[in-house]
């Protein structure tokens, strides 16, 4: 018979396993912004990487579903060129994004800005998952208690018949 602490431990391990990657994956975005501040001259590879990073978060205006990075359309190509040019001129990624935002509106951002009402789209899934996890943990614990109570009652009555 397993003891309750062990069960909680199992769930905790699981919670950690879910939570750690969750935290880890919000990281790259902010890390990108930090490095962006120091606008030193970029090597070609760095420049291309940064162009790619920005372009993949902008929506291609002519094709609707794809990012500027992924779209083979002429307009997207020009936009990549413009991003490259602006970065080379020393603009920060944040300034480049602002440039497009000013002209196309929020529609151009494939990732809604985490501010104001938009927090809903970022936080609701996390809240739902966390709330669900707590709910499942509590229910499962209650069910185990019920199961143990029932098993105790059965052993008093006679041999287990279920299954």
């Amino acid at each position: 018979m397993t003891s309750p602490p062990r069960e909680i431990l199992t769930l905790l391990t699981f919670a950690v396993l879910v939570a750690v990657p969750c935290a880890a994956f919000t990281e790259p975005a902010s890390r990108g912004q930090e490095t962006a501040v120091q606008a030193a001259p970029l090597s070609d590879a760095e420049l291309e990487a940064r162009v790619r990073e920005i372009a993949s978060e902008l929506r291609c205006p002519t094709c609707r579903a794809l990012s500027v990075q992924d779209s083979p359309s002429g307009m997207a190509e020009e936009m990549r060129g413009l991003i490259r040019e602006q970065l080379r001129a020393g603009k920060t990624p944040e300034e480049v994004r602002a440039y497009f935002l000013e002209r196309y509106g929020e529609w151009i951002l494939l990732k809604p800005k985490a501010e104001g009402f938009n927090w809903a789209v970022w936080l609701l899934p996390v809240v739902a998952l966390a709330g669900g996890l707590v709910f499942v943990m509590l229910t499962a614990r209650r069910w185990v208690q019920q199961g143990q109570a029932r098993a105790a009652a059965l052993t008093q009555k006679g041999p287990e018949e279920e299954i």
Partner: peptide, 12 residues
């Protein structure tokens, strides 16, 4: 190089 179009936020 479509700079005017980008400046005006043209979709098509």
């Amino acid at each position: 190089s479509s700079r005017i179009a980008i400046d005006y936020g043209v979709y098509g």
